[in-house]
Design a protein around this nucleic acid. Structure first.
Lengths: 359, 359
DNA sequence: CTCACGCCTTGAAGCGCTTCAAAGCGTTCG
DNA sequence: CGAACGCTTTGAAGCGCTTCAAGGCGTGAG
């Protein structure tokens, strides 16, 4: 059906529909919100009128009168990290299932944008907010100064359960998992490549690494903490590691992110005398695209991103719907190991696939 | 400042603020919207009262009364495609600069979700909508049945300029660019790897390829159209191409996406007698992460994603603010060539870098 | 045949805010 | 000294919708 060419007539309101259908305003509203209270005949009359006028209910007026909204807001720190994309996807699915709509706002890890978006969501009176943060300092700043009464759950950061629900992944156990895998596949002389100390998840992964090393009594040869956790930082770390690897002093590397791992693999492979995984195994973290796409696919720790989004949404909606008897909870999810070439014995079957899209 | 522990008091309203400040409701409103009409002393009194009550204006009531909103909605088809992430980033920047907030909704390329999100945005009375689509069939369905009066601009798809503004990238010229690059670097016997015919952008790239081949009078040896445009499809296509490449019948391949190109490079490289780019050059499309991350970094066509988002936002805001004298425009942006190893002469400097994020 | 009971439908009272005409007031000008 | 003017502040009228008490009306029971 083509757009009706009524020109610049503002928008049909519920009143217009009522007049056209020959019923009262209240009845029109009931057709939308309590169809059971209305005679089928009446309902049909009204629906026909709505169609005729291309009526679109005004969500603002609705939320205002009803005092509630059907949207859930989500603040994401980084759209280029596939973990957060997964989180968004899980949240979207859960929200849709519950009849809500997910609105995503991107902060680019800027504290200022984070609280700005929080404010916008609060003003819009969304049903709940999913706040995804990377950095515990940002959390502190936000928790102190944005006294939101909107149900909010923290994603990706474990927080004192006082004010919010939270859903996070156990980074320490992930670090432990990665390290144990290396050890179980025969590596004995390990290095850890981490990152800046402000990144809480990275620190926890380091702790997990340390525990595993101690438990198994293998050698912790070296730790590098580059300024960032991207590919370039990985490359540099790999170069730094090279001499010891060549001397056989290091036979396994645990990297705190996949990007780091990819850079490390790249650096190590650039040395012709070295082969990954035969001479040195590398394991990453996050199950990012970079881990699939690496020339040598990289073993990694997969974070249950979708689950995080799903659980977070369920928690926030629970709080929104039953705020009375809602109790804040901190859910901690467990990451899983994904084995690929970078840690496998030669000749083992190669894991391949794609995560990407098209244009 | 800690959250005031007033318990479950609903929310302070503008009226409460007015009473506390000892002024009228209208004055409080003016403090927010027309600070110039209010005495500094009064303003301060009001602001103090707001702080005291943790007052958060109700955006719904605001938009309702004012008849306008300060949000821009964006519908994205695929969060895992870095092109769209770039678009979102550009849009976000432009929206922020204009004092608007960008709300992103993800449709996962599902028509049903697309129109659902459109409806939500329309109901929320956002100032404008950025509709990003992949598929011209979806456009047809949506244009016909969603008679939105909200300013809307189409992104990524060139559409008849009748109903909407649109911003798209000239895929034909991109295909031409990629092909010419191959020819200019000495390739003479070319193959094209495309995709399903429903993907309009891919078809345009094919057209550009064909034109370039004809213009330069080089040989168009073969076209393959796999069922998809992902890495796996690329691998299969690469395998199919292998015999002819080995026989020297093909010395250059234009792929319709980077994922395809990555798969092709992978397949070709698995043949020890073959070297990329010495024996065969490969060029991709999109400037996705996969093109950076490939063992042999892949020359590609970069789409101006951020610019697309920025221009789209400017158009939609223009229409929202000056709908009277707004004229629909179709902006077509030009893609650019990014040269990497996969098409370069041996010994040429290697282009490296990273696009990724952290966790 | 009448009364009461249910089911639909109606009308009116807000939801919290913007805005505009009108009222207050301290000044300036004649 | 009074009129006129400009700047603040006020009060009230909605914005479009939900909801709830109240009104109509058809039906079954007495």
């Amino acid at each position: 059906m083509m757009r009706s060419s009524k020109g610049a007539r503002p928008q049909a309101s519920m009143g217009d529909v009522a007049v056209l259908a020959g019923v009262s305003l209240g009845t029109v509203s009931h057709v939308l919100n309590h169809p059971d209270r209305v005679t089928p005949a009446t309902a049909e009359k009204v629906l026909r009128a709505m169609a005729m006028l291309s009526y679109v209910p005004n969500g603002n007026a609705r939320s205002l009168a009803a005092g509630s909204s059907t949207a859930v807001g989500m603040v994401l720190p980084d759209l280029s990290n596939s973990l957060f994309i997964d989180v968004a996807r899980g949240a979207e699915t859960a929200a849709e299932r519950a009849g809500y709509t997910l609105m995503i706002a991107n902060s680019n890890t800027r504290l200022e944008r984070e609280s700005q978006h929080l404010r916008t969501f609060t003003q819009a009176r969304v049903a709940g907010i999913l706040l995804t943060l990377n950095d515990s300092e940002h959390f502190a700043a936000i928790a102190d100064d944005d006294p939101t009464t909107t149900p909010t759950v923290m994603l990706n950061l474990a927080v004192p359960r006082s004010q919010f629900c939270s859903v996070s992944v156990d980074n320490q156990s992930g670090g432990h998992l990665a390290t144990s895998h290396l050890i179980e596949t025969g590596r004995r002389r390990l290095a850890f490549v981490g990152g800046p100390s402000s990144l809480e998840p990275v620190q926890h992964r380091a702790t997990g690494f340390a525990h595993a090393v101690r438990e198994h009594g293998v050698e912790h040869v070296r730790t590098i903490n580059p300024a960032g956790v991207n590919r370039a930082d990985g490359w540099e770390s790999g170069v730094a590691l090279l001499p010891q690897v060549l001397d056989g002093l290091i036979d396994g590397v645990v990297a705190a992110t996949d990007l780091l791992a990819a850079g490390i693999v790249q650096a190590l492979s650039s040395e012709p005398r070295l082969r990954v995984p035969e001479d040195v195994a590398v394991v990453g973290y996050d199950n990012n695209q970079a881990a699939w796409d690496s020339p040598i696919p990289i073993t990694t720790i997969a974070q249950p991103g979708e689950e995080m989004g799903r659980v977070g949404t369920e928690l926030v909606l629970n709080e929104a719907q039953r705020s009375a008897d809602h109790v804040h909870r901190s859910v901690v999810l467990t990451p899983t190991l994904v084995v690929r070439r970078s840690t496998q014995h030669p000749g083992a079957p190669r894991n391949d696939g794609a995560r990407g899209g098209s244009s």
